[in-house]
Computed example of a mutant assay.
Amino acid sequence: MTVQAWPLTDEQRQIVELCRDFAVREIRPRAREVDEADVVTPMDIFRKAAEVGITDFMLPVEYGGGGLTDVFTQCLVQEELCWGDPGIGNLVCSNGFFADPILVLGTEDQRKRWLTPLAGRDAPMTALATTEPEAGSDAASIVTTATRVDGGYLINGQKAWISNAGAAEFYVVFAKTDRTQRSRGVSAFVMRKDGLRFGEPMRKMGQRAIVCREIFFDDVFVPESDRLGDEGQGFRGLMGTFDISRVILGAAAVGAARAAYEFALEYARTRKQFGVPIIEHQAVAFRLADMATKIEAARLLVQHAARTIDAGHTATGLAAMAKLTASETAMFVTWAAVQTLGGWGYSREFPVEQWMRDVKLEEIEEGTSDIMRLVISRNLA
């Protein structure tokens, strides 16, 4: 664990230690098994995380959560859990992504009804449904519709690549209430699993602990009381959620990169070639130096973005920088770890090949690296 640039409170140190211990005891021993199972959500790990407060630490106290609502603390947690395994780490904290748009757009009654059940050991799993077959990073182009009827809306359309779909009990869904508009036509709704149809689990390169499916909406009725905010406010809530989630995903990437670096460093210290440990070979030593430097730089940028959001400032461009830097750092570091281990790195004998597959998702989800560069360019001072 590196020295923190910002001092931690006692509460922050305690949750970091809790998550580090959970990663060692519960996540690392199961990571390979879960990866090879491919399309099975490890609910037992999620339940164990709920028992110790990891699934609800980010929820406000008034809804039964742990009250550690600041983005900086969420980044500390995400880094430790994803050091254990990126897929499982992201899974056990996924209720925070569901909660964000409700906190941004929801009424007090909606917050109580939908967030209070997430607290405690029996917390349901949740999902955020934005992506569609023809609408990924361009969320304003979604075509799922919400048509007004007496007392509410009928939702029709299709979502794709939805994390936890099928396993989740609660869903925040984004749909067009005005098809003549792009972003201003998007509204947000919260609903239960009942009435939704799900596709088969999607086969993925990595992060297999999080099962993704398509969701099909066929005249699914949602009462008006379950619309979040006014009509047309959904995109605003989604973008606010993205600023936070991109920074947190950046922390996840840093955690995975740290795991790969530590593994490669230990291997380089013990593996001998030409009669000496390979860490004494200049090419390997320089590669490890690059890995360590990039991880430190990525962590500082992620935590700076988190602190900026926590201070109440708009950080859209900075959040994109954090995600871009951290995800590409993780891709480089896991590649470098495989390279350092040589043939063993390419085999399933060691975990670095899995981490390399896992972190590729961080360059894609919630905005690809190309989209992040576009967001940054549009937010230059």
Rank of each mutant, 00 (worst) to 15 (best):
T126D: 02
L361A: 10
R30H: 15
V173C: 03
V3D: 13
A330W: 06
S94F: 09
A127Q: 06
L288I: 03
S347N: 15
P124D: 08
E266Y: 08
I278H: 00
T73N: 13
M1S: 08
R32S: 14
V71D: 01
A264H: 06
E134I: 09
Q12H: 07
R378W: 01
R307P: 00
R227K: 08
M321G: 02
V39P: 00
Q273P: 04
V220K: 12
R213S: 13
A257I: 03
V190A: 04
L18T: 15
G87S: 12
V34S: 03
M321C: 15
C75P: 10
L318A: 03
A268N: 04
E33Q: 15
V222I: 14
R30C: 05
N95H: 09
E26L: 03
G96I: 06
R307G: 03
F350E: 15
A135T: 12
A99P: 06
T73M: 06
T241E: 14
R299Y: 05
K272T: 15
L154V: 14
L59E: 04
Y261C: 10
M205I: 15
M58L: 14
L380K: 07
E362A: 07
T340F: 03
A5C: 00
Q110P: 02
A337C: 13
T131L: 12
T177M: 04
Q207S: 15
R203G: 00
T116H: 13
P29F: 01
G206N: 10
A160L: 14
S183N: 15
G120H: 11
T145W: 00
C82M: 10
A315T: 11
T107Y: 08
T55H: 08
L300A: 14
K159L: 11
